[in-house]
């Protein structure tokens, strides 16, 4: 779902580029506040982790396999700001070095995958943690739902961009149902792997799971 150049028109790309700059700027400040000088090495290694995790394919049946996007996972593990920065850097590197995602579409991709993907997971996770009992299994359930929903929501971001600046060849309804449908399926795989990963970390190194240590603090105040 890395949008290439030319898929969405130039003005729309520019608008979302500006929105992404603003969103990333918020996380730059947030991460500095949350992690101070540790922000750079930790977010850097989290970026490496996401990059590596995206290389892990999981079979989803019918001869195809999906791979983890990692936005929700990173959010639960290191908090929303560091997750946004790590995913953004992965997208920058993929666009510049692997031609994966267009350079003029970088703003669109950062908006969907880093901003929408991470923050939707954050909001959902935060709500669930408020409702659910304060036990470890709630963290696992929260991660599952956050990952499950954040993937199709990021896809909806794409549909929105397509509606504003894409071609009119396919009706919006068709694009929406195609994108939403496939990404719900992908979201299920993402949800299972995310929840299982969080659960395995909770049993071995719960001190490293941000969503367990600091689940209910506002990201702005952290």
């Amino acid at each position: 779902m890395h949008i290439p150049d030319g898929f969405i028109d130039a003005p729309t790309s520019a608008i979302f580029g500006a929105a992404s700059v603003a969103g990333v700027a918020v996380s730059l400040r947030g991460a500095r506040k949350q992690l101070d000088e540790r922000a750079a090495p930790l977010a850097g290694l989290v970026a490496v982790f996401i990059f590596a995790v995206q290389m892990i394919n999981f079979p989803v049946g019918a001869g195809t396999s999906g791979h983890l996007m990692g936005g929700a996972l990173a959010m639960v593990l290191v908090g929303p700001h560091a997750a946004v920065l790590a995913v953004t850097v992965v997208l920058i590197v993929q666009a510049l070095m692997f031609a994966d995602g267009g350079l003029s579409a970088l703003g669109l991709n950062v908006f969907n995958l880093a901003l929408v993907g991470v923050w939707s997971a954050y909001v959902l996770y935060g709500l669930l943690r408020l409702i659910l009992p304060k036990v470890r299994s709630s963290v696992v359930v929260g991660s599952f739902v956050a990952a499950l929903v954040s993937v199709p929501v990021a896809a909806v971001g794409f549909v929105g961009q397509y509606a504003i600046g894409g071609s009119e060849v396919f009706g919006l309804g068709a694009v929406f149902s195609a994108m939403f449908g496939t990404h719900v399926l992908i979201g299920i795989g993402e949800a299972f792997i995310t929840a299982l990963t969080v659960s395995s970390l909770l049993s071995s190194r719960q001190d490293l799971v941000f969503g367990w240590k600091a689940p209910l603090r506002s990201p702005v105040e952290v």
Binding site: E37, L42, L45, V46, F49, L77, I193, L196, T197, L201
Partner: peptide, 23 residues
């Protein structure tokens, strides 16, 4: 899937700890 998740978990621990040591 469970097994892949364990791999991802182990990978995260290594990456995170490396980040701390680098720091």
């Amino acid at each position: 899937w469970r097994f892949l998740a364990n791999v991802a978990g182990a990978l995260f621990i290594r990456s995170y700890e490396r980040g701390e040591r680098v720091y």
